[in-house]
Design a protein around this nucleic acid. Structure first.
Lengths: 187, 187
DNA sequence: TTCTTTTTTAGACATTTGTCTAGTAGATAG
DNA sequence: CTATCTACTAGACAAATGTCTAAAAAAGAA
């Protein structure tokens, strides 16, 4: 059973509605380093991570700068591209083998029109995303790099264990060199 | 005529719906340095700036750190507080005398339930906010302080003329000292 | 295992940014 | 007009962070 199914059940969808929702998704598999979204191409899909981890990053001066990493049981999209239908500024690629339940923008609109409760679900999803990204931006402004790292240890310990430090560094908006310094200081 | 009325007309609302929407808002006036939202208090209002400018900031180590400044004809809220109904981390205060059309969360929910098209409007508002804040976070990670300042000159020249540099500095996530340095370098 | 590649650490030094402080200019109040 | 306050600039120095480089450690492949 797909995780996306459990998710929508837990949110309260049943019967025909649930079936219609699940039919709107399709499962796609990715091998390590496969691209889900490529810079310059418009991404018309919203994804729900079934398995694996997916890294968002942009290439700046030849280097990968990671914005975020999505893990199992979460929705994700290349926000700007998906919403405004413009070429994506960022890449999304699989950090390990994994799979994503994806829904096209067309199907999403169909669900929004046909299932009233789905609109409320989508509003909730947008609101939660807004809170998450607002809090993240807030941290970038208010906290020091060291404080952001400590917060990551507490709030996202799974990332620490699974993701190369170089990627974590750019999520913290610092260089790997500096993260190494912070780590040696803290221990 | 209130700007919020023009706004909802332009978005396509008419007749009873428009009237119902406008009745849900109430106009509040603020004098310079009045608080719209206070840290620690839950903010249950969404606002539409009619006149003036309103500064969001948090107090860190006794200093004001500005997150954003809202100007005329834009919606705003203390996002985290409004959506998740938790005490606000930030203050919002009037930089000059001004007025805001405000709608309570209760009234917002009422409109969402009673006017189907209002749900679509709200989805659009959330999507636009998400794009805006995502782009802003992106800039904080990818651009240097100098590049962020140059972008502000191009995209938000009105801020430059109206807002004290100390506030602009913290919007750029730097100190006034450093902004002064950047300004003298660029000219 | 052994070889190879990737990840992580860290030294040395450069650059960026912050802190503290003071001075100047402009605004405002009396 | 004078005194006071606020905004802005800037010098001197300190702290934070980046760059370049190399080596150790860990992970993966043969």
């Amino acid at each position: 059973m797909l995780k996306v199914e459990k998710y929508f059940e837990a949110v309260g969808f049943t019967g025909d509605d649930l079936e219609k929702i699940l039919n709107a998704f399709e499962l796609k598999k990715f091998k390590k380093n496969d691209f889900v979204v490529e810079e310059g191409k418009t991404s018309r899909y919203l994804g729900f991570v079934e398995t694996g981890m997916f890294q968002y990053y942009i290439v700046k001066d030849g280097e990968e700068r990671t914005n975020y990493v999505s893990i199992e049981n979460t929705f994700f999209a290349s926000v700007l591209s998906f919403i405004s239908e413009t070429p994506s500024l960022e890449n999304v690629k699989a950090l390990v083998d994994g799979s994503i339940s994806m829904i096209s923008k067309t199907n999403l609109k169909m669900l929004l029109n046909e299932i009233p409760a789905f609109k409320d679900f989508y509003i909730g999803l947008l609101e939660a995303s807004l809170c998450g990204i607002d809090a993240s931006r807030y941290d970038l402004i208010v906290l020091t790099a060291e404080q952001r790292y400590e917060k990551m240890i507490i709030n996202e310990p799974h990332l620490l264990q699974q993701i190369p430090l170089q990627h974590l560094a750019s999520m913290l908006a610092i260089t790997p060199r500096h993260l190494s310094r912070i780590r040696s200081k803290i221990r």
